[in-house]
Amino acid sequence: MSDAGRFDPALVAAGTAALDAMKADSPGLVLAVLISDDGFEVVRTPRMGEQDGRFASMASSVQALSEAVIHELQIGKGDAVIIQAASGVVIQQRVPGRSVVLSALFRTDESLGRCLVGVRNCTAALDAAISALPSGSSITL
């Protein structure tokens, strides 16, 4: 279920552009979803796929739990969450200082380093794009 209608169209447009750019740069990318902190999907690439919003909700929970662990262990600022499985790697990263998170699934033939670089570049691009939006401050933590 895309929840794009609940978000500022300018944010959706910025997210679409950033995710499409990541897709173009990362052949191993299977799915990338930009989610709000509370588990709603802002935009995804490719546009087809899971439609019930479950992945967005799970990604939100995973992000919150990982940040709770970081806080509990007092190990500094969070960077990325990596879930490595036999047939895929999920990498999540918060857009710095924003209440939106990028969650991306890669095939295992893509190196972990390349995946991380792709996600970092995308969140940096999203941060810049959101900063330029008139509504950008409302997406700040």
């Binding site: 609940r6 978000f7 709000s36 902190d37 509370d38 709603f40 929970s61 739990l65 709770a68 509990e72």
Partner: peptide, 8 residues
């Protein structure tokens, strides 16, 4: 331990 997020 809390896992609170901005409510949209």
């Amino acid at each position: 331990i809390r896992t609170e997020a901005v409510n949209t």
